Amino acid sequence: MPMNQDVIITAALTGAGDTVRKSPHVPVTPEQIAKSAVEAAEAGAAAVHIHVRDPETGAPSRDPRLYRETVERIKETGTDVIINLTAGMGGDLVVDPLQPLEKLGELPGTDLVGGLDRLPHVDELLPDICTLDCGSLNFGDNLYVSTPEMLRQGAKRIQELGVRPELEIFDTGHLWFAKQLREEGLLDDPTVFQLCMGIPWGAPADPGVLQSMVNMLPEHAQWASFAIGRMQMPWVAQSILLGGHVRVGLEDNLYLGKGNKATNAQLVERAVQITESIGARVVTPDEARVKLGLKPRA
């Protein structure tokens, strides 16, 4: 696949990881997340990927009220940016490794609900994009659960709402199943894939693995890729060279360099520099809407 000449940059603003205590720049409240979204857009991001957090504790949240406030605050500024809301929260299952059926679903850290129960904020807010995590995974030391039937239900509802799903691919089997959803008519073209690299224990941040996943994509799919931690910026170039778009942000990496804690805007600025330095161009939100098959800005 030839190098991508016209690149969409997405900023993943806060995520759900235990990063709040590690950097003062990770946004927590709706006001902070919205401000970071605007700054990322001004730095060159065409899209922002949004999780929300409990404003008091910084813990990840599924509260639709927090999504509503965050999105409203972004829109009130008049900033032109594509809104991409996570729909992956609600899949966490913590089990006792010695007695896995004891207190199943009751251990701290478990937040496991059905596929449709992960979508109330999408139903209400109708963002441009929402994510669909396309399979279960040993996610670090715990489990992320997204069964085939959960995914079928979620994909069907997202399709009914007219929202574009971004298919989160953490391993090759997830890509295989996403293609099955398309075969079943539960995904509309253009399909949009996010190839997620380096998350234990999914696909490693290895160029050969990325190439094999790119080779598996449906014809005419739009795709992006990211890698976490210190591989984030090298992966900007890696993704573009293989024909994809890019994602950066504090969800995946906290640093610009050793000991240099970054803001989302600074990470986007660096991604813009890398993109332009290898001869590609950063596209505007309107250009990205056309590429991704989204509705024009209201």
Rank of each mutant, 00 (worst) to 15 (best):
M197L: 13
C196V: 14
G173V: 12
D171H: 04
G185C: 13
L167C: 07
C196Y: 01
H174L: 03
K179V: 13
P165H: 07
Q180I: 14
R182E: 14
F177C: 04
Q194I: 09
H174Q: 10
Q180R: 13
L167N: 02
L186V: 10
Q194V: 08
R164Q: 13
A178I: 02
E184D: 15
V192L: 13
F177A: 03
G173R: 15
H174S: 10
G198L: 02
M197S: 08
L186W: 08
H174T: 04
M197R: 01
L195E: 07
I169N: 00
W176Y: 11
W176A: 11
F193C: 12
G185Q: 14
R182L: 15
D171T: 00
H174P: 02
A178M: 06
Q194A: 14
L195V: 08
G185N: 11
D189W: 03
L181W: 08
E168F: 06
L186E: 09
V192N: 08
E168Y: 05
Q194E: 10
K179Y: 09
G198F: 01
V192M: 10
P190S: 05
D171M: 00
Q180E: 14
T172F: 15
L175A: 07
F177N: 03
L175I: 07
F193S: 05
L181D: 06
Q194D: 10
E184Q: 15
H174M: 14
M197D: 01
D188G: 07
L187F: 06
P190C: 01
E184A: 13
E184I: 11
L181Q: 09
L186K: 08
G185E: 14
L167F: 06
A178Q: 03
L167R: 03
H174K: 07
L175C: 03
Q180D: 12
F193W: 10
F170M: 02
T172K: 14
Q180M: 12
T172A: 15
F177I: 06
G198N: 07
F193H: 11
F177H: 07
H174V: 04
D171Q: 02
L167E: 02
E168A: 06
K179N: 15
L195W: 09
T172W: 13
K179I: 12
E166C: 11
D171R: 00
T191W: 00
T172M: 12
P190R: 00
F193M: 10
L167D: 01
E166D: 12
W176D: 14
F177E: 03
I169K: 01
D189T: 11
C196D: 05
D171W: 00
L175V: 06
E166R: 10
G185R: 13
R164K: 15
G173Y: 10
M197Y: 02
P165E: 09
I169G: 00
Q194P: 05
E168V: 07
A178F: 02
G185K: 11
D189R: 09
L186Q: 08
E183G: 11
P190W: 00
C196P: 05
G198R: 05
P165F: 05
D171F: 00
L186S: 08
T191M: 02
Q194G: 05
C196K: 01
E168W: 01
L175M: 08
L195T: 05
E168G: 02
L186D: 06
I169R: 01
G198V: 03
T172E: 14
